[in-house]
Amino acid sequence: MSFLLEVSHLSKAFGGHEVLKGVNLRIKQGTIHALIGPNGAGKTTLLNIINGLETPNKGRVFFKGKDITSLAPEKRAKLGIARTFQLLEVFSGLTVLENVMISLYAKNPWGFFKSLFLGDYFNPQERDLREKALFFLKEVNLLPRAHEEVQNLPAGEQKLLEIARAIALEPEILLLDEPAAGLNNRETRVLGEILKKLCENKKITILLVEHDMELVMKISQHVTVLNFGEVLAEGTPLEIQKNPEVIRAYLGEET
């Protein structure tokens, strides 16, 4: 059985503080795989290492069987790894539509001189890009907001925009860092449906870092629990719910 993404014996320390201690993670193609755990468990660091924003001290990252541990993030994006951010990283000052267009342009750039001589009005490719971008906005129900500047959107919709921007790359795997944070119940339900649709219709594998257990249990096929930089448990949502260690880790944190 081969895995789309495989992370083996990953360790990372900042200064003297060990954030990840030999983490193993394997993600099957075409699934929604959730990564949960209390704050400070090292989830975001793991995502950063998977898409190349940080380099691990030890361990390897494999994508489709290839070792990508020392590849730059822009190269990983080209391979088909896309992500969103926990703390928003939208392009403010630009419209929602333009944000997605940038992503589409990154996939198939036509270069400096064409932009210089044709601008946007005389370049048919710009028009194609616009149409395509609208399509991806529709996927995440952001079509009505297309022409608003992103910084004026509520945080929840900015998260959706990041998803639209990421799927515009037509990636094989999508790394989502707490997409439901800042969303109300109804919006979270809609998000769940969107993600399910992406996975089923577009065959995008999703690695989901999330605190909203209801969402995690509903849409994911596989769950990994991270605690203090180590994998505490792995399994189907049902198994995880019944795992006594997980319950202790969570309850222990709450009391």
Binding site: F91, S92, G93, I102, L104, Y105, P109, F112, L118, N123
Partner: peptide
Amino acid sequence: NLSRSTFGKTLHALHS
């Protein structure tokens, strides 16, 4: 021309 093209928007995105 350049600043209105998506290339130009990409440059603008460098700010944020």
